[in-house]
Design a binder for these strands. Structure first.
Length: 442
RNA sequence: GUGUCCAUAGCUUAGUGGUAAAGCUCCGCACUGUGGUCGCGGCGACGAGGGUUCGAUUCCCUUUGGACACCCCA
C-alpha cells in the first residue's frame, strides 16, 4: 500500500504556482504596512502552553491547539495566534523600545479544527500591531491599513464593508445603563454576537430567558432589543450619547471619512471572539453573496504584556488570514496573472553542454534567470517540456550558434524565431520582463 | 466536538448485484535541429476492513480521506 500523497488534514501543499500566488499576497501586505512605517518581526512556531492559558479564548486553548510534551516533559503549543508571542517579545524589551511602535509579521498559525470553507488547520496571517498610542488615532490607523491592503489588491469599496463597534460602549450599556449582572453580561454578549445567525423571534426569546423577573418588569429586555436596532451612533438614547466611547467613535468615523473611507458602519452587535479586546473592535465583511462572511478583523486590547511582568502598553491591531483573503480575491475576480521568475529556457541542440558553459555564465551575469535543459533529450522533447512549463522564451544553442555567435531565440507564445547576438537577446528578454503585467507592486 | 453529503485510472466524470466507459494527461509511433493542432497505438481505477449474497465496485456496518454547515474563528 503506497503512502498517501495528500497533505495532512487542513494543511496545504504549495506547488510553485500556489507559492507564486502566496508570495503575491504577502508582497502586497508587506508593501502596504511598510508604507505605514511598520517593521517585520518573527517568533518561533512553538511556545509554552502557559502563555495561552490566561488570555486566549478558552475554546481555542482547550479544544483547538496542538499541544504536546517535549522530550524534557515541558508542555508546548504550536501557536494558534500571534498576539501572545508579540506581547512576549514586546514585554522583554518594554523599557528599551521607542513608541509609537509599529510591528507586523506574516506567520503560520495552527488550530485543531474541522476544515471548511475559508478555514483550515494551518493558515498564514498578517498581524499588524501598533503599540503606545492610547488615542483613537491608533484605531484609525489600523483600520486605514486594513482598508489600504484590500485596495492594493484591486478591491473596490463596494466589495467589502467595515463594521465597527466599541466593547467599552457595550459594557457600559449592559452594566451601567441596563444594570445587568456580570454573570448575565457574558451570556448576552455571546448571544448578541449570534444575533444575525438566528431568527429575530428566537433571539428575542433567548434574551428574555437571560433576564430576571424584576428586570423584565422594568422593561430591560425591551430596552436592550431596541438598542440593538440602532444603526448609527446618532440614534442612541441621549443618556448614552454623552458617554465618552460614543464621542470616541464619532471622532473615529470622522477620521475614516477624512481618509476617504466610506464603507464603514457602526454595528452595535459586533463582538469578536477574543476576550482580550477592550475597546474599539472592527470586522471586515465580504459583500459578495458567495462569500458573505467576516473576513478578518481586530481591535484594541490591553494588558497582554502584563502577563510577562511588564507595564501595560496601549495596543491596537488586526490579523488577516490568507485563506479567507484568497476567497475574497477569487470572489471578486481580482486574481492577477502571475509570471514565472524564469526569463529564459535554454534548449541544447546536440552535445554542447560543456561548450555552452561560458555563454550561460555570461547570460546569468547579465541578470537573466535561465533554466537549462540538461536532459540530453532531443530538441522536440525539450521544446515540448518548455511549452508545458509555460516558458515564453527558449534560447536554442547548438554547434551552429556557438560557431556563428548568433543564437536562436524562439518565442513559444507566437512561434516566432529570430537569430541575434547574445547581448540583443538579453535585451529583448529584459524588455519583456519589465513590461510584463504580473500584478506585483514594484 | 455535532450534523449532512461524497469517495471509480495521474486529473475530471459515466456506469452496473455477474470485476467497468470516456475526455484530458502520460508513454510510444509518423524519427533523428523545432513544441502547442491532427492521426494511430499503449499504460492505467472501483479508498481500506468486515458483513449480506452463489457472486459486491454497486446493498449494510466500521474506518480513513474529502466537501459544506454548526461550534469557534482568520
Amino acid at each position: 500500500m503506497a503512502l498517501s500523497t495528500n497533505p495532512y488534514k487542513g494543511t496545504r501543499d504549495f506547488y510553485p504556482e500556489d507559492k507564486r500566488f502566496q508570495n503575491y499576497l504577502f508582497s502586497v501586505m508587506r508593501k502596504v504596512v511598510e508604507r505605514y512605517g511598520y517593521q517585520e518581526y518573527e517568533t518561533p512556531l512553538i511556545e509554552p502552553l502557559e502563555m495561552y492559558l490566561a488570555k486566549t479564548s478558552s475554546e481555542i486553548v482547550n479544544d483547538q491547539t496542538y499541544v504536546f510534551d517535549d522530550r524534557g516533559g515541558r508542555k508546548v503549543v504550536i501557536r494558534p495566534e500571534m498576539t501572545p508571542s508579540v506581547s512576549r517579545i514586546l514585554a522583554a524589551k518594554r523599557q528599551d523600545l521607542a513608541y509609537p511602535l509599529r510591528w507586523y509579521c506574516i506567520a503560520n498559525v495552527w488550530r485543531y479544527e474541522r476544515p471548511q470553507k475559508g478555514r483550515l488547520r494551518e493558515h498564514w496571517q498578517l498581524n499588524v500591531d501598533l503599540f503606545g498610542v492610547a488615542g483613537i488615532e491608533g484605531d484609525h490607523e489600523i483600520i486605514a491599513i486594513a482598508d489600504s491592503i484590500l485596495k492594493a489588491y484591486g478591491a473596490k469599496s463596494s466589495n467589502y464593508s467595515i463594521k465597527v463597534n466599541s466593547r467599552k460602549l457595550i459594557n457600559h450599556i449592559l452594566i451601567d445603563y441596563l444594570e445587568l449582572e456580570a454573570t448575565q453580561v457574558s451570556g448576552l454578549m455571546k448571544l448578541i454576537d449570534h444575533m444575525h445567525k438566528i431568527e429575530y423571534a428566537e433571539f428575542a426569546t433567548e434574551v428574555d430567558m437571560l433576564i430576571n423577573p424584576s428586570q423584565r418588569e422594568a422593561g430591560t429586555g425591551k430596552k436592550l432589543l431596541n438598542l440593538l436596532k440602532v444603526n448609527s451612533i446618532y440614534d442612541l438614547p441621549a443618556d448614552l450619547k454623552s458617554y465618552e466611547s460614543v464621542a470616541n467613535l464619532q471622532r473615529l468615523f470622522t477620521m475614516l471619512e477624512k481618509s476617504k473611507i466610506k464603507n464603514f458602519d457602526f454595528d452595535i452587535t459586533l463582538m469578536r471572539g477574543f476576550d482580550y479586546y477592550s475597546d474599539i473592535v472592527f470586522e471586515v465583511y465580504d459583500t459578495d453573496p458567495s462569500n458573505n462572511r467576516s473576513m478578518f478583523g481586530g481591535g484594541r486590547y490591553q494588558g497582554l504584556v502584563e502577563l510577562f511582568g511588564a507595564r501595560p502598553v496601549d495596543s491596537v491591531g488586526f490579523g488577516m488570514g490568507d485563506v479567507s483573503l484568497a476567497n475574497f480575491i477569487e470572489a471578486h475576480g481580482l486574481t492577477p496573472k502571475l509570471t514565472l521568475g524564469v526569463d529564459l529556457f535554454v534548449a541544447l541542440a546536440g552535445d554542447v553542454y560543456l561548450k555552452a558553459q561560458p555563454l550561460l555564465k555570461d547570460i546569468r551575469g547579465m541578470g537573466i534567470n535561465i533554466a537549462v535543459d540538461s536532459s540530453g533529450s532531443k530538441l522536440d522533447k525539450q521544446l515540448k517540456s518548455a511549452s508545458k512549463q509555460s516558458y515564453k522564451f527558449v534560447l536554442i544553442i547548438g554547434e551552429k550558434e556557438l560557431d556563428s555567435e548568433q543564437y536562436t531565440l524562439k518565442n513559444l507564445q507566437t512561434g516566432e524565431e529570430e537569430k541575434h547576438s547574445i547581448e540583443r537577446i538579453v535585451s529583448i528578454v529584459k524588455d519583456n520582463r519589465t513590461s510584463r503585467k504580473d500584478g506585483l507592486l514594484s
